[in-house]
Simulated scan of single mutants.
Amino acid sequence: MKIERVASRFSVTALAALAGVHVAWGLGSSWPLPDREAFSDAVIRRPEAPGAVACHSVACALGAGALLVGGRPKQYLALSRLGAAGVAGVLGVRGLAGFSGRTDLLSPGSASARFRRLDRLVYSPLCLVLGASSAIATVRRHR
C-alpha cells in the first residue's frame, strides 16, 4: 500500500474518531476522565467544562478536516487539496504551540500545570503526527 494511502486512512480515521469524542463531550460525557471537573482541567484548564456549542464546533471542524484529507469533495479537487493543506497547517501550528508551552496564545486560559503536562505528552504530539500524515496524504496524492 502506498504511503499516501496509509497516511490518508490514518488521518481520516483519527480525525473522525476525535470528532466523535468531541460530540460525546458536547453531550455531557467526561470520558475518559471520572467527572466534568477533572475533564475541564485536563482538556481546557478552565473552572467549567467547555459547552456543547464549543465541543460540537470542534467536532464539525474535525469532521470537515477528515473529509478534506480524504480527498472530498472529489468534484472540487483544488478546494479539497487547499483545505487538506490547511488542516495539516493548523494541526502543525497547534502541535508546535503546545510543545513550546504557548497553547494559551491559541486558546486563552490553557495554562494549568496538568494541562501543560498533558499538552506536551499527548495533545501536541498527536497534532504533529496528524498534521504530518495529513500533509503526506495531501501532497503525495495530488502530485
Rank of each mutant, 00 (worst) to 15 (best):
H142N: 14
A85V: 15
A78L: 12
D119V: 02
G83S: 15
L118R: 07
G86K: 13
L126T: 12
D35Y: 08
W25P: 05
F115K: 00
V93Y: 09
S40A: 13
K2L: 13
W25A: 00
L18G: 09
F10W: 07
G70V: 07
A42W: 09
L106I: 06
P50T: 14
F39A: 10
W25L: 00
R72N: 14
V93F: 09
A135D: 03
G89C: 10
S29C: 03
V139Q: 01
A113P: 02
A97Y: 01
L79W: 15
V53N: 12
F115G: 00
L96I: 03
G70Q: 13
M1S: 11
R81A: 12
A66P: 05
A17S: 10
A59V: 06
G65R: 07
A137R: 04
L68S: 12
S100R: 03
D41I: 03
P108D: 15
K74C: 01
V90M: 12
W25K: 02
K2N: 14
K2D: 14
S11E: 02
C55V: 10
R94H: 10
G89M: 11
V6G: 05
V122K: 05
L27A: 07
V69C: 10
A42I: 08
A16T: 14
A137N: 03
G28F: 07
F115V: 01
